[in-house]
Simulated assay, not measured.
Amino acid sequence: MGGHLSKIAETVFNLLPRKLQQFARGRLAAGTNFKETATPCGLSLPSPVHATLTPEEVGDGRVIVVGDVHGCPLELEALLDKCKFQQGVDKLVSVGDLVNKGEQSAEAVHLVRQHGGITVRGNHDEMALERYEMWKKCGRLDPKYAYLEQFSAEDVEYFRQMPFSLSIPSHGVLVVHAGIVPGTPLEDHLLHDLIEMRHVAAEGSASANRYKALPKFPRSAGQPWANIYNGPQHVIFGHHARRRLQPCRYATGIDTGCVLGDQLTAVVLPPVSELRRRGIASPPTGSVTLESIAGELISVRAKRCYKKEDVD
Results as ranks from 00 to 15, higher is better:
residue 102 G to W: 01
residue 61 G to N: 04
residue 135 W to C: 00
residue 92 L to W: 07
residue 125 D to N: 03
residue 215 P to H: 06
residue 115 H to I: 01
residue 246 Q to E: 15
residue 52 T to K: 05
residue 48 P to V: 09
residue 48 P to L: 10
residue 282 S to N: 01
residue 305 C to W: 03
residue 164 F to A: 07
residue 279 G to I: 02
residue 271 P to V: 08
residue 207 S to Y: 05
residue 237 F to N: 08
residue 74 L to T: 15
residue 213 A to Y: 04
residue 113 R to G: 00
residue 19 K to P: 07
residue 173 V to R: 05
residue 256 T to S: 11
residue 185 P to C: 11
residue 26 G to D: 12
residue 85 F to V: 03
residue 228 I to L: 12
residue 172 G to E: 04
residue 280 I to N: 03
residue 106 A to R: 03
residue 80 L to C: 06
residue 255 D to C: 14
residue 31 G to K: 10
residue 88 G to T: 07
residue 10 E to T: 14
residue 168 I to H: 12
residue 187 E to S: 14
residue 100 N to Y: 11
residue 230 N to T: 13
residue 238 G to L: 05
residue 272 V to S: 06
residue 100 N to D: 15
residue 133 E to P: 00
residue 113 R to T: 04
residue 297 L to I: 14
residue 23 F to A: 10
residue 247 P to A: 11
residue 246 Q to R: 11
residue 82 K to Y: 01
residue 98 L to Q: 03
residue 39 T to Q: 04
residue 164 F to C: 02
residue 199 H to V: 05
residue 188 D to P: 02
residue 70 H to M: 03
residue 22 Q to G: 06
residue 293 I to C: 03
residue 165 S to K: 07
residue 261 G to K: 02
residue 183 G to I: 11
residue 208 A to M: 01
residue 79 L to E: 03
residue 43 L to E: 04
residue 268 V to L: 12
residue 191 L to K: 14
residue 10 E to V: 14
residue 49 V to F: 00
residue 89 V to K: 13
residue 20 L to E: 15
residue 185 P to F: 09
residue 116 G to W: 06
residue 14 N to I: 07
residue 50 H to A: 06
residue 250 Y to F: 14
residue 6 S to A: 15
residue 171 H to R: 14
residue 174 L to R: 11
residue 128 A to E: 01
residue 303 K to H: 04
residue 94 S to Y: 02
residue 4 H to S: 15
residue 148 L to C: 00
residue 200 V to E: 05
residue 272 V to M: 10
residue 35 K to N: 09
residue 132 Y to I: 06
residue 166 L to T: 03
residue 309 E to R: 13
residue 214 L to D: 02
residue 39 T to E: 00
residue 95 V to F: 07
residue 305 C to Q: 12
residue 127 M to C: 01
residue 53 L to T: 12
residue 255 D to W: 06
residue 165 S to M: 04
residue 244 R to Y: 02
residue 139 G to K: 04
residue 45 L to A: 13
residue 135 W to P: 07
residue 228 I to M: 08
residue 233 Q to P: 09
residue 38 A to M: 00
residue 183 G to M: 08
residue 225 W to P: 08
residue 236 I to S: 04
residue 185 P to G: 12
residue 197 M to I: 14
residue 103 E to I: 00
residue 112 V to W: 01
residue 4 H to G: 15
residue 188 D to W: 02
residue 113 R to Q: 07
residue 30 A to Y: 03
residue 7 K to S: 15
residue 165 S to P: 00
residue 146 A to N: 11
residue 250 Y to W: 08
residue 186 L to Q: 08
residue 44 S to D: 06
residue 243 R to D: 14
residue 293 I to P: 00
